[in-house]
Computed example of a mutant assay.
Amino acid sequence: MSQKFAALWDVDGTLVDTGEMHFRAWRKMSQELGVDFTREHFRATFGRRNPEIIRFIYGDHISETESQRIANTKERYYMDEARQGVQLLPGVRTLLEQLQRADFKQAIGSSAPRANLELILDLTDSRIFFETVVAMEDTSRGKPDPEVFLTGASRLGITPSQCVVFEDAVAGVQAAKAAGMKCVAVTFVGHHGEEKLLEAGADRCVNRLDELTADDVRKLFK
């Protein structure tokens, strides 16, 4: 029997570019609270779970109830924007199709709430490629902790060393490497540069995913 491999996908900045939608949603939410949400805040927290972002921006004094209210309101603002249109990034669908034909199992591994991920998969008509979705609600620790990717590998029944992660954030690359997985970093959206992603441990860095084929991905394991 041939060896089985898996591909675990981050979403924001890797499958799709919804960064500006998130930024505007956080900024709108913060303005309602009288807090200035800056680009520096966004870069420092991108790819993290909402509870961690809220503590970073608004402080540890925020109660769990208020934290949940902030998160729910922010996500409502984000989803309103996302419904106006989201597309897969260049090369993503082709690589998803190639990996599927190459018998890679595939999953989503994201810090985003499940409702956000389900909406993106529906809007981009990409649900058919993924056997499982690991969302914020499925983890207790955010990236760079490897929990999200280890959970995905476990659900797929694939050994972590036989998994490759597609990421665009330093924390995500660190999580992939802490899980003992290969990692391809993507710079197209530009949240983090190639140098930072390679320093974080990425095995390969590309600007766009149409620079890769399924054969290129398989070679990472040799």
Rank of each mutant, 00 (worst) to 15 (best):
C183R: 13
S140P: 06
L121K: 09
Q174S: 11
E131A: 10
R27Y: 09
G59H: 09
A202E: 00
A200M: 06
D216E: 05
K222G: 10
L33N: 07
A7H: 09
L117Q: 02
Y78N: 09
K105M: 04
V173R: 06
R114Y: 07
V86W: 08
R127Q: 03
D12K: 07
T151D: 05
G157Q: 03
A112V: 05
L209E: 01
E131F: 04
E20R: 09
S67P: 01
L123H: 11
A107N: 13
V133T: 14
S111M: 08
E211M: 01
I120L: 15
V134N: 15
H61L: 03
E194G: 03
E195P: 00
L198G: 03
T213E: 02
D103V: 07
T159N: 09
L88C: 05
S111F: 07
E97V: 01
E66I: 03
W26F: 02
E97S: 06
Q87K: 10
P51R: 04
V11D: 11
S63L: 11
Q162E: 14
L119Y: 01
E194Q: 13
E40P: 06
G152P: 15
L121F: 02
A112D: 13
K143T: 11
V206A: 01
C183S: 15
D216Y: 00
A7Q: 05
K74L: 03
R49W: 03
M79I: 12
F221P: 06
E75V: 04
R39E: 15
S154E: 15
R155C: 05
K74G: 02
I54Q: 11
G91V: 00
K222V: 05
V217F: 01
L123E: 14
A25Y: 08
K177M: 14
V184W: 00
S2P: 15
V186F: 01
E167L: 03
V11N: 12
S154D: 11
L96F: 09
